[in-house]
């Protein structure tokens, strides 16, 4: 069995994270923003699992489970908020919600 250099796993996580960040920053549709956020969360989970594999311990996987839980709760609440927002403003454009302007 060939070995995988750990930096490659971390680079993969970094690339996915950066792509998710680009998505969060560029999209105006809030559903896309939430999806990109999932990508970012997933990327950070990947980094944990890579670390876990490096040491041959299960701690990183436990941490991934935590992230999974967090993502599930976040998506549930976030989607609820999106539905409310759509009901109130009839749009999914986040730039419409700029009432908190200073």
């Amino acid at each position: 069995m060939q070995s995988i250099p750990i930096e490659h796993g971390l680079i993969l996580a970094g690339v996915l994270f950066a792509l998710g960040l680009v998505g969060v920053l560029t999209r105006r549709n809030i559903v896309f923003v939430l999806m990109s956020l999932e990508v970012m969360l997933n990327a950070s989970g990947l980094a944990f699992v890579v670390a876990s594999a490096r040491w041959g311990h299960a701690d990183g996987q436990v941490m991934f489970l935590m992230i999974l839980t967090l993502a599930a709760a976040e998506v549930a609440v976030g989607l609820g908020l999106i539905i409310q927002m759509y009901r109130k403003f009839k749009t999914v454009d986040i730039d419409v919600l700029s009432e908190m302007k200073g």
Partner: peptide
């Protein structure tokens, strides 16, 4: 960062 991973299986039991 030059460490290679030897992917030993860390299964359900350990987790």
């Amino acid at each position: 960062f030059q460490v290679d991973i030897v992917p030993n299986e860390v299964g359900v039991l350990e987790v």
